[in-house]
């Protein structure tokens, strides 16, 4: 994968937390294979994730895109019968290695799910929980700063600052999803994984999240799985097309959606294959 002009700026932003690995990539997956109870769901996937970019994973249902995403923070560990092989280099370590501290990995690789899933706690505690358990805030004042900062970055502070004690579940769907994004960034991750983050939201709430994603990439690296290739086209700089458990094509989003190289990508994005 070619280096882009973004690499230079990304070094500044990413270096604070982690040194980029090969070729300026924040994360490099090599030859990933995932099998569920012996049935291969994904194979031969190699993909570099560049810092401070949004990478969209697209493809029809069952193509392996969510399976791949779950490898990146070891979410497949919790699925019985799942077996993952290959190598995923992140900050000089193979995160698939047995010696990896999964809790600490998941701090650095945050996740936002399809359905907003705030904790049954106050707005404040939703954000404060992660920094507390990871020991990121030495005292209450520091915690207040993190909560405010995270809510501001998620574009939610203006809407909730006067009701931080209200339950997170009292917010609208779009606000809950932004709360979950605020919760993810509160623990200062390097990489944020988003699995269909807008699929339960209306078009306005979706547009807000998309604008937020665009703002967040100044500080974070984002990988988003989406069923909507229109959304992929709107929010990402890089796109990877998965089909039948294989990574078919990856490249600049501009190129993938205007002149894809592979016939299967062409067929999928033009709606000629289901």
């Amino acid at each position: 994968m070619s280096m882009t002009e973004n690499t230079a700026t990304s070094l500044n932003a990413a270096a604070a937390n982690s040194a980029p690995t090969q070729g300026g990539a924040l994360l490099s997956a090599r030859d990933i294979e995932v099998a569920y109870s012996g049935k291969v769901a994904l194979s031969g996937v190699s993909l570099d994730i560049l810092p401070n970019q949004v990478t969209a994973l697209i493809g029809p249902s069952g193509c392996g895109k969510s399976t791949f995403l779950r490898c990146l923070n070891r979410m497949n560990d919790v699925i019985p019968g799942a077996k993952v092989s290959g190598e995923i280099m992140f900050d000089g370590h193979d995160i698939l290695g047995a010696d990896i501290d999964v809790v600490s990995l998941r701090r650095r690789v945050g996740m936002v799910f399809q359905k907003p899933n705030p904790f049954p706690k106050s707005i404040y505690d939703n954000i404060a929980y992660g920094p507390k358990i990871h020991g990121l805030a030495p005292n209450r004042d520091a915690l207040d700063v993190i909560v405010r900062d995270s809510l501001e970055r998620a574009g939610l502070w203006g809407e909730v600052h006067d009701r931080l004690k209200s339950p997170g579940t009292s917010l609208s769907g779009g606000q809950q999803q932004r709360l979950c994004i605020a919760r993810a960034i509160a623990v200062k991750p390097d990489l944020i994984l988003m699995d269909e983050p807008c699929s339960s939201l209306d078009p306005i709430a979706t547009a807000r999240i998309e604008e937020l994603i665009d703002e967040l990439r100044e500080r974070y690296t984002i990988i988003i799985v989406t069923h909507s290739m229109q959304q992929a086209a709107r929010v990402s700089q890089k796109t990877a097309f998965f089909y039948l458990g294989e990574l078919v094509e990856t490249g600049e989003t501009d190129d993938i959606f205007t002149r894809p190289a592979d016939k299967r990508t062409q067929a999928y994005i033009t709606g000629r294959v289901g």
């Binding site: 086209a233 989003t253 501009d254 959606f257 205007t258």
Partner: peptide, 9 residues
């Protein structure tokens, strides 16, 4: 224009 149509719908 081609990029905008593809990217922004």
């Amino acid at each position: 224009v081609v990029r905008f149509l593809a990217r922004r719908q």
